[in-house]
Amino acid sequence: MKITNIRIGEISVPLKTPFKTALRTVNSVEDIIVEIHTDTGNVGYGEAPPTGVITGDTKGAIIGALKDHIIKSIIGMDIENFEEIMLKLDKSLVKNTSAKAAIDIALYDLYGQLYNAPLYKMLGGYKKEIITDVTISVNDPEEMAKDSLDAIRRGFDTLKIKVGKDASMDLERMKAIRNAIGYDVKLRIDANQGWKPKEAVKILRKMEDTGLDIEFVEQPVEAHDIEGLKYVTDNISIPVLADESVFSAKDALTILQNRAADYINIKLMKTGGLHNALKICSIAEVYGVECMIGCMLEAKVSVNAAVHLAAAKSIITKIDLDGPVLCSEDPVEGGAIFDEFKITLNDAPGLGIKKVNGIRYLD
């Protein structure tokens, strides 16, 4: 199964409601799709969202990395030589993790097709169904409480609340939500690097004292501030999850060696795909530290790949893969079934994707 052609395209998928965090506001998913074609007629699908404020990867940068570097390095290679392809992909250029992830995902799709097996079974086969949380965008307290109640009506029992825009208002947001939904629903909070270390400790201690029962706080401080992350971890009772601080296996090792966080968040667009995400899983297993798997604002192609990883590995105990259910439509035929909070895999080979509709090809 040799790579004969790699096509690049764009998709645009409107969101049901605007997605708001401490870093940005988004109204639609505008992602790059790759198709890797082979001499056997098999096609592998991958996807990359331009998330400049997190990964540094803009749409133009992703397209440039693919056309000028990555495609040239792997065209003509055989999927059977999987490790060699991954080495070539990794060395094709530095960083550009989203562009690498799109190709990596498509290659793993083909790898599963080569051996006629669903990817989650090839990676570990731990389970076939997973349960995701859903994200509540940062807004006024009353609106966030209303959105939380709506999510519960749809069956979600775990909510991830976006905070970090205004520390004093964040406490009011969380009070409003907890008062509205009661204590049978888990609340996670994501500050998206929005606080300074001492500010984070102050506001999180207030949340503890108020009895808000927070499951964990995600990335309370800036990504580069590992000392600040450790300071927060050491000075609050709420567990801390490292997200933007962890792009690579080396980053994960640094976090765990310094006990700078209690959990690690894996995102394929940060790791450059499944190949390096698996390395983070192995490191976390050695340290006995549970992982969450998350996504950017992505459509079903790349989130589907993350679902396969989550279903394969027991170390991934927390799921934040709500991207497709935030979209107003699904351009992907095949793949995992996203039914609100429940995500179910099928046994189709690879990622099980048959077609992606609405692609605007760039070649």
Rank of each mutant, 00 (worst) to 15 (best):
N304I: 07
P118F: 02
K20L: 06
K250A: 08
I315T: 06
P349T: 10
L187T: 02
M122C: 08
S137K: 13
F82G: 01
R188W: 01
I264E: 00
T271Y: 08
N27G: 03
I103V: 15
L274W: 04
K16A: 05
R259C: 07
K16E: 10
V356S: 01
K196V: 03
T344E: 13
I280E: 01
N179M: 13
D104C: 01
Y287K: 05
E340Y: 10
V289A: 04
V240W: 07
S328Q: 05
L119W: 10
L114V: 12
K165V: 10
I103E: 09
G323S: 15
V221G: 00
I103Y: 00
Y111L: 10
L119R: 03
I359K: 02
M269F: 02
L110A: 08
R173F: 05
K88F: 10
A310Y: 12
T17N: 12
K127S: 04
I79S: 00
G194D: 07
M292C: 11
V94F: 10
P349S: 13
I105V: 14
T233P: 06
G194Q: 02
G60W: 11
G56S: 14
I255N: 10
D225C: 14
E142T: 13
D225H: 15
A61S: 12
V307T: 01
D170Q: 05
T51I: 13
G125R: 01
T40M: 07
G228D: 06
A151G: 06
S237A: 05
E290N: 15
I11E: 04
G272E: 06
L149G: 15
I226L: 15
P349R: 06
N192C: 10
S98W: 03
S168C: 00
I54K: 05
Y287H: 08
K318L: 10
M174V: 15
S12N: 13
D39E: 12
I70F: 12
M174K: 01
D339T: 03
A101Q: 11
L297A: 11
M292E: 09
T158E: 07
K270Y: 11
G194V: 02
G272D: 11
I32L: 09
L309M: 15
L268S: 05
S282G: 04
M122G: 02
P14S: 11
I32D: 05
G112K: 02
S73E: 15
K100Y: 14
A284F: 00
I70L: 14
D209K: 14
G334C: 06
E84Y: 14
C281S: 14
K121M: 09
D213V: 13
L87F: 10
V163F: 06
I79E: 00
T158M: 03
M174R: 05
S248M: 12
L107M: 10
T58M: 07
T233V: 09
M174I: 14
I131M: 08
V138P: 01
E172S: 13
N258R: 13
K16W: 08
E199D: 07
D31I: 12
H308R: 11
V303H: 02
M269Q: 12
D363I: 02
L23W: 03
S248K: 13
N42R: 08
K186Y: 09
M174Q: 08
A348L: 07
S314Q: 14
M77R: 09
K160W: 03
D57T: 04
I353E: 01
N139S: 12
E244Q: 09
A145D: 09
G211F: 07
D140L: 09
P349E: 03
A102N: 12
R259L: 04
G125Y: 00
K270Q: 14
T40A: 14
G60R: 09
E199A: 05
K175I: 15
